[in-house]
Design a binder for these strands. Structure first.
Lengths: 276, 276
DNA sequence: CCGGGGCCGTATCGTATGTTACGTATTTTT
DNA sequence: AAAAATACGTAACATACGATACGGCCCCGG
C-alpha cells in the first residue's frame, strides 16, 4: 500500500501507539498540520508530553528524524495548496466501520429533516423567539430535556425572559399561572411521548400560550396544540432513537436568531460578543 | 493600516526592496507559504541568494527574527485551514436558504470528526464504558453539560453505576473522594475551557481515574490528563460554536455500547427492550 | 507479593541553524 | 571619472534545537 499523506500514516498506526504518542498524534490531527511545522519543544508542550515522546512518535511513523518528518508535511502542504481541486474527495481514511451505518443514517436524517422545513417556518419560529416581550419557557422529556437545556443556555444569553422548566411535574405545573397569550412554550417530545408533557401542553394551550413543538417524524400528540411543529427524523439502526437532527435544528435556530437580533442592532448581542 | 497577512506586507514593501530581497519575496509568493516554513538555508538556496539576504528580507518586513516570521506564517496557515467549509456545495434539494450554510458546515463537521476517530479508539472507549465494575461519572461545562446529561440519561438505562455531576462546583468536588483507579470520568469541555473543570480533571487524574475527554479540535488542556480524547469539529458560520459533532459522537457511542452489551448477552439490555 | 518489560520524562550532548561582522562588488552621485 | 554609499556574499560565531543516554515508574505475569 502506498501511503501518500502523513495523516494516513497516523490513522494507520495510531492503534499500535502507546498513550503518550497517541496524544501527540491526536494533537497533530486536531490542528493538522500546523503544529507539526513548529519546533519539537512547541509540539511537545501543546500535546502535553515531553520532547522525546514527540521524536519517538515521528520515528514510529517511519521517519529518520524530525527534519524528514517536517519535510513530508511541507511537501503535502505544497501539493494541497497548489491544487485547490484536490481537497474535494478526501479519500483519507475510511470511516470506522462499526459506526459507519449509524453515522450515515444520522447524516441522512439531518438532511431529510431540513428538507421538510420551509423557509417560512424557519423565519416564523425565529420571529417568535425574537420577540423579547414574550416570555419563553422550555421543557423536554426524559431524553429530550438536555436539548431544552442546551437551547435555554443559549437563549438565556441572547435575550431576557427565558425559563427552563425542570424538576418534578408539580414544580413546572405551577408555572402555568404565569403563562399567557404573550408567552412562548418550547416543548421537546419524541417517542415515547410523555403523558405529563401532553397534559402540560394542553393547559398552556388553553391559556393561549404559543407552543413550538420539537418532535419526531411521527408527531407527538402535542402537535394538536402547537403553533409550529418541527419534526426531526430520529430513526437509526440502534436500539435508541437519535435526537441529532433536532439538536442540529436547535443550533440552526439559535444561529438564525442571533443573526436576526444582530441585524436589528440589538445592543445585547453586541455586548455579549464583546464579553467573549 | 492593519496588515493581516505576510503576503500583504510583501506586496506593500516589495517596491522598496533591493534586487536580492525582491527575489526572496517573489520566491516566497510563488510557493506561498511553504518555502517560508523551511530553514533559512533552504529558503536562500531556492531563491538563489545568500542566507543573510533572507534575514534582511524578513527584517525589512518588520520581524525581529526569523522565528517570529515563521510563527506569523504558521498562524496564518492555521486560520486558513481551519475553515474548509467553503467546499462540497451539493445543494441537493431546495433547503431553506438562510440555514443552508450553517447546515452544510455542521454536516461537514460531523463527517470530519469521524474521519479522525479510529476504529480502535471507538472500541477502546466502548470497552471502558462497558466495564460495569467501573463507576462512570459525567460532567460538562456551561454549554456542554446538556451533552453530559443526555449521555447520562442513556447510560443510566443500559448499565448501573452512572452519576451525572451537577450543580455547584463544591458539590461535585466532594465526589472526588469516591473516585478511584477503577472509575471513569467523562468530561465535556469545549472553548472556552472552564478552569473549574480543568482543576477537577487534574484531581481525578491524580486519583487514578480514567478520563475520557470530549472536546473541540483545539483540545481542552484536560487532554493532558485524558486516557481518550474525542475531538469534535465545532466551527460554524455563527456567533456560537456547534456541539453537533460531539452530540452525534455521543449517540454513536451509546449505540455501539448497547450493541456490545447485547452481544455479550447482558440480561439488563434484554429486560429493557422488553420494557419498551 | 515480587520480578520483568515497556513507557515516559530528565538531563546532557552535539550539531544544525540563525545571526552577525566584515570585506568585496556594484551602483550612484557629483 | 572618481568617490561614496549601498548591496551582497563569505566566514566565523553563538545559541537554540534535535538527538540520545539513563533512570524511575507503572502495569502485567508469575
Amino acid at each position: 500500500m502506498v501511503v501518500s499523506s502523513v495523516a494516513e500514516l497516523i490513522t494507520e498506526k495510531i492503534d499500535s501507539m502507546p498513550a503518550g504518542e497517541r496524544r501527540a498524534a491526536q494533537t497533530l490531527i486536531a490542528s493538522y498540520p500546523v503544529v507539526g511545522l513548529k519546533t519539537v519543544a512547541e509540539f511537545s508542550q501543546q500535546a502535553g508530553v515531553s520532547s522525546p515522546t514527540i521524536l519517538r512518535f515521528v520515528a514510529r511513523l517511519g521517519f529518520q528524524n524530525y527534519a524528514e518528518f517536517q519535510s513530508a508535511l511541507q511537501d503535502e502542504l505544497a501539493a494541497q495548496l497548489q491544487s485547490p481541486a484536490s481537497r474535494t474527495t478526501a479519500p483519507l481514511s475510511p470511516l470506522p466501520a462499526s459506526s459507519a451505518p449509524m453515522l450515515e443514517a444520522v447524516l441522512e436524517n439531518i438532511r431529510e429533516t431540513f428538507r421538510h422545513i420551509s423557509e417560512r417556518q424557519m423565519t416564523d419560529v425565529v420571529a417568535q423567539l425574537a420577540n423579547q416581550r414574550s416570555h419563553i419557557y422550555l421543557i423536554g422529556g426524559r431524553f429530550t430535556d438536555p436539548l431544552a437545556r442546551y437551547m435555554a443556555a443559549h437563549l438565556n444569553l441572547i435575550r431576557p425572559n427565558v425559563t427552563h422548566l425542570v424538576g418534578q411535574e408539580s414544580l413546572w405545573r405551577d408555572r402555568l399561572i404565569d403563562m399567557n397569550k404573550r408567552d412562548t412554550l418550547l416543548i421537546f417530545d419524541i417517542r415515547r411521548y410523555q403523558d405529563s408533557l401532553i397534559r402540560f401542553a394542553e393547559k398552556a394551550h388553553q391559556r393561549g400560550t404559543t407552543i413550538v413543538l420539537f418532535t419526531d417524524q411521527w408527531l407527538s400528540p402535542i402537535a394538536r396544540f402547537a403553533r409550529h411543529v418541527i419534526a426531526g427524523r430520529t430513526a437509526v439502526p440502534s436500539a435508541w432513537d437519535s435526537s441529532s437532527s433536532l439538536f442540529v435544528t436547535v443550533e440552526t435556530l439559535i444561529g438564525a436568531l442571533t443573526r436576526k437580533l444582530e441585524a436589528e442592532g440589538a445592543r445585547r448581542i453586541r455586548e455579549i460578543e464583546d464579553l467573549r
